[in-house]
Deep mutational scan, measured.
Amino acid sequence: TTITITINGEELRIRGDHEEIHKILKAWEEDHNDEEIVRLIRELAER
């Protein structure tokens, strides 16, 4: 699965399995701050 998210003008492409993507979207849905979401995404992007 690949998704693209733009946060603060920075486009981040994430490839991951369903569970990893779900974790990010769940954090977003629960209204975590952008920095935390960006950190989760970067961790995935670095793999």
Rank of each mutant, 00 (worst) to 15 (best):
T1A: 12
T1D: 09
T1I: 15
T1F: 09
T1V: 15
T1W: 03
T2Y: 12
T2A: 10
T2G: 05
T2P: 04
I3R: 14
I3C: 07
I3D: 01
I3T: 05
T4E: 04
T4P: 01
T4K: 08
T4W: 03
I5Q: 00
I5M: 02
I5V: 10
T6P: 02
I7K: 01
N8F: 07
N8P: 01
N8L: 08
N8Y: 05
G9F: 04
G9W: 03
G9R: 02
E10S: 05
E10V: 13
E10N: 09
E11Q: 15
E11N: 13
L12D: 00
L12H: 12
R13G: 04
R13C: 06
I14N: 00
I14S: 01
I14D: 00
R15L: 13
R15Q: 15
R15P: 08
G16Y: 05
G16H: 03
G16S: 07
D17V: 07
D17G: 07
D17P: 13
E19M: 08
E19P: 10
E19Q: 10
I21Q: 00
I21L: 13
I21P: 00
I21E: 00
I21N: 01
H22L: 13
H22T: 13
H22C: 13
H22F: 06
H22D: 14
K23Y: 03
K23V: 06
K23A: 11
I24S: 01
L25R: 14
L25K: 08
L25H: 03
L25C: 04
K26G: 05
K26R: 12
K26A: 13
K26V: 09
A27T: 08
A27R: 14
A27H: 09
A27Q: 13
W28K: 01
W28N: 01
W28Y: 09
W28S: 01
E29I: 11
E29C: 07
E29G: 09
E29T: 09
D31E: 09
D31N: 15
D31Q: 09
H32P: 15
H32V: 10
H32M: 15
N33I: 14
N33L: 15
N33M: 15
D34M: 15
D34W: 15
D34N: 14
D34G: 12
D34P: 11
E35Y: 06
E35R: 06
E35V: 14
E36S: 09
E36V: 11
I37M: 07
I37A: 04
I37F: 12
I37H: 02
I37L: 15
V38W: 04
V38A: 06
R39P: 00
R39I: 05
R39N: 09
R39W: 01
L40T: 08
L40C: 08
L40H: 06
I41P: 00
I41Y: 00
I41G: 01
R42W: 03
R42D: 03
R42K: 14
R42A: 07
R42N: 08
E43H: 07
E43P: 00
L44C: 02
L44I: 10
L44K: 01
L44Q: 02
A45V: 12
A45Q: 09
A45P: 01
E46A: 12
E46Q: 08
E46F: 03
E46I: 06
R47M: 11
R47D: 05
R47F: 03
R47A: 12
R47W: 01
